[in-house]
Design a protein around this nucleic acid. Sequence first.
RNA 1: GGGGACAUGGCGGAAUUGGUAGACGCAAGCGACUUAAAAUCGCUCGGGCUAGGCCCGUCCGGGUUCGAGUCCCGGUGUCCCCA
Length: 877
Amino acid sequence: MTGLPHPVQRPPVMARYNPKETEPKWRQAWADADAFKATVDPSRPKYYVLEMFPYPSGRLHMGHVRNYSLGDVVARFKRARGFSVLHPMGWDAFGLPAENAAMERGVDPRAWTYDNIERMRVELKQLGLAVDWSREFATCDVEYYGQQQALFLELYLRGLVYRREATVNWDPVDQTVLANEQVVDGRGWRSGAMVEKRKLAQWFLRITDYADQLVDDLQTLDRWPEKVRVMQENWIGRSKGLRFAFHFAGGPPEGFDAGLEVYTTRPDTLYGASFVGVAPDHPLAELAARSDPKAAAFIEKCRHGAVSEAEIETQEKEGYDTGLRVKHPFDPNWELPVWIANFILMDYGTGAIFACPAHDQRDLDFAHKYQLPVRPVVLPPGADPAACEVGDEAYVGPGTIFNSGFLDGLDVETAKARAIERIEGQGQGEGATVFRLRDWGVARQRGWGCPIPVVHCAKCGAVPLPKSALPVELPADLDFGRPGNALARHPTWKHTTCPDCGGPAERETDTLDTFVDSSWYFARFTDPTSPEPIDKAAADYWMPVDQYIGGVEHAVLHLLYARFVTKALADEGRLSVREPFAGLFTQGMVTHETYRRQSGEWLEPAEVEIVAEGKTRRAKLADSGEPVVIGDVEKMSKSKKNTVAPEEIFDVYGVDAARLFVLSDSPPERDVQWTSGGVQGAWRFVNRVWEEFDSQPAEGEPHSGAAVGDDAGALAIRRAAHRTVKAVTEAIETFHFNSGIARLYEFLNLLKGHPAKTASPGVLAARQEGLSAFARLIGPFTPHLAEECWSRIGGQGMVVAADWPAYDPALTEDASKVLPVQVNGKRRGEITAPAGAEPAEVEKIVLDDPEIARRLEGLTIRKVIVVKDRIVNIVAA
RNA sequence: GGGGACAUGGCGGAAUUGGUAGACGCAAGCGACUUAAAAUCGCUCGGGCUAGGCCCGUCCGGGUUCGAGUCCCGGUGUCCCCA
C-alpha cells in the first residue's frame, strides 16, 4: 500500500534544475530582445497563428494553459523555420459576467474587467508565450469598439443591417432578451423566471445574404476539421423545395387575397396532403384569434411553450382548427382544413406548411391525435400498393409515387421536379431554396457592450450617426445595481439631437452581441493602432490566419459569424480574403477525476488521498481517512471542484513541466486528463534533460572519458539524433505533439546510455551535436528549459533566434534492416538485410537462413512476398 | 428519427496509413542506494501454457487479403451535431 502524494507536492530539495530562477530570467531575456515582435517582411513567408482570445474572467485555468501552449508550439516552430510570425493576444472583454459581478458585488464592470485583464496578463505572460504583446487590446477599449461602430455603419450603408419586429425570449425578471441557449426548461437561466415570447424591434445583420457562399466556400477550407464543416453546413441548412400559395375555398380572409403561402421540401407528396398548418404567430392565426376567443386562447398557450427547435420537436403536438378551408392546387374540389399547430416555426420558410402525415413524422403524430386522414403516396421499393398502410411511423425513404394522379410511377426526385413545374405553370408558386439559417439578431439590452451608433428621432426614425460622431462612448457612471439595461436607464446619456434634422432624439440603448466583437478582432490584430478599423496593407500581408486554435464549442456560431463578417468586409474592399481562417484546429478539454463524500458532497483533489492496491485504486480523505467515492473523469469545473490551479503548478514544478504535461499526455484534439502523476513525470523529464546537458563538458574542459574512439556509439547517437529531428518536425507539422514528445523522451533515454563521463572524444562530439539539436527541438514545448540548456552547451545567441535543426536523410536510415519473416502470415523469425535490398536479394537471404529453412520443412513454397525494408511473408503449403 | 466520430494493457495513448500490436508516459511489483523515508538508478509489467518456445489477443460476429488495430458488411456501446 502506497499513499500517493497530493496533486501539488513539493519537489525534492536536491533537484538541480530550478525553474524559479531560470524561467523568469529567460522571459526577461526574450522581452529585452523584443524577440516575438511581428514584422512585415515581404522577403519571408508569413505565418499568422491565433488562439481564440480569452474572456477576462480573472484567473487562468488549465484550459487556457492548454489552448495557448498549443498555439505557442506552432508559433515557435514556424518562427524557427524562418517564417515571419504574427502571434498576438487580446481580450474578449464585453459581456454578461462583468454585469453579473457588478450586480452581485457592487463593483464597476469596467474596473472589474480591467482588473481581471491585469491579473490574467501576468499569468499568461508567465506561460512564456511567444506573443507580440505590443499588439494587445481589449474589445471594451473605446479604440476598438469605436472602430467597430464605424464598421457597423458601413454595413448599414450597404444594406446589411436592418431593424424589424421579431419574437424574442423575454426574461421578465432580468428585463432582457435571452438567446435560445439561455432558456432552460422554459425558464431564464439566471433568474429562473418563466420566459415569455415578446415582439420587439431588433437589429439584424443580413447573414442570410451570404448563406449560399457560406455553404459553398466550406469546400475551400481543406485545413478545417471535417466535423466542423459538416456542423456548419447543417446549421445553415440549405434545402431546395417549393414555395406556393393555397387558394382559399369560399373567398380569402382579410389580407390574404394572394392566398396562403406555404413552403415544402416534399412537393412530390402533395397528393398525400391532409391539412394545412400555420405557426401560432402566423398572421393568419392572429387574424383568426381576433374573431375566435378559443383560437386566441390556444395561441396564448403556445406563447408559453417550448422555444428551441429540439424542444418543439419533442413536446406534445397540439393544434386548433381555424375552420378555414383551402383548395388543393391539383384538384379544386379537394378542400383541406387550416390548423394552427404548435410545432410550426414562423421563422422557417413561410411559417406555414401543408402536412403529409404518411411521410412526415410530426405531421403523422398530429394527424393521429386529431383523426386527420393519412394517405400514403410513396411506395417503398418492393411494397404492395394494395397492402400499403402507415402505422406509427412515417415512411421517409425513397420509392415510387402512387395515389398521385399525374405523378404516379415516378421516383421521388423526378416527382418533385414535375410537381414544381406544374405549380409554376399554374402561376401559383415557384421552386425556392430555403435556409435554416436566420438573420443574426445582434441587439442586446445590456449596458456593458458596444453601443449601436444610431439615434431615434421622432421625425426621421432610426438614423445612423455620421462617422464624425464616433466613437459613441459608454458613460463612465452606469448603474449596474439592478437587473435590466443600465444604458437605457442612465439619466442623461441617451438624450441627444438628430444628425439629420437637428431636433431632439434618443440614442439607441441596445448594444451589440459580443459575437460581433469577436468577428473581426483577428483583422484588427494586423495593425491594432490604425486610425482605420483595418489597415489594408497590414491585413493584406498577414491575413488569413494560417492556424486558428480553439474549442469545438465555437464550431458554429463564432466561426460562422467571423466567416460572414470577413466576406462582408471583403465586399467593402476592407479585406482581400474571403475566409478568415485557412487552418482550424479544435482542441480537447482538460479533465480531472471527480471525488465525492459518500454523502455526495464534492471534494477537491487536494483533500483526497489515493490508495493503490495492485490494479485497483481507492480514495480516502487525506486528513480523516473517511472513504471517498472516485467519480467520472469530467471537464474541470468549479461546481465539481475538480480543478487544479495553474499558478500552484507553476509554483511547484515550473511552467515548462506544466506545458509539457498538457502537450504530451494526449493528442491535442482529444481531452487530456490532468493527473498529479503525469505532471510529476513531466517534471522528472525536465530534470533529466537538464542533468544530461549539465553533464556535457564544455570544450577544453578536463574530462575523464576514455581516450579511445567509440565509433559505433557515436554513430548510434548521430543516427538517433537525426531520426529524432525528422520525427519531431513531422509530428509538429501534423499536430501530433504527444508523439513528437515521445520521440524526445526516447532520444534522451538513448543519450543516458552514452554518458558523458565515460565517453570517448567521438561520442562526446556526437553528444554535442545531438544536444544542440535537442535543445532546439524542445524549444516549442519547454522554451525556458531549452534556453537554459542551449546556453549551457555554448549555443550561439538564444534558441528563439536559432534555426530549426536540419537532418541528414542518410543518417535517419540504418544501413541494414531487421526484417520479420512470416510463414503463412505468422511470424517465424527474422533476418538482417541491407537497407533498400531488392526482393530477389532478400528472398535469397531468407531461404538461406537455417532457422527459416527448418520452419519450411515438408512444405512447398508457393510464393514469397517481400515488402522492401519492412517484412517478408512466405506462402507455403 | 437523421448524420458524424470513436472503441487498443490497470490508465493516457503509439503503430511509418494494409506489413513485427502495445512506442512513450502514468500506475503497480521487485531490487540497489539509505539508519529510515523521499528522491534517484536498475529490472519486470496484455493473457495463457507442458515458460527461452508455442498458443491466444486491438468491443462482438462475418468477409476481402500472402498479411487486417487499419479496408468492407452486420451488431453493441460511448460521445458530438442536427431534428
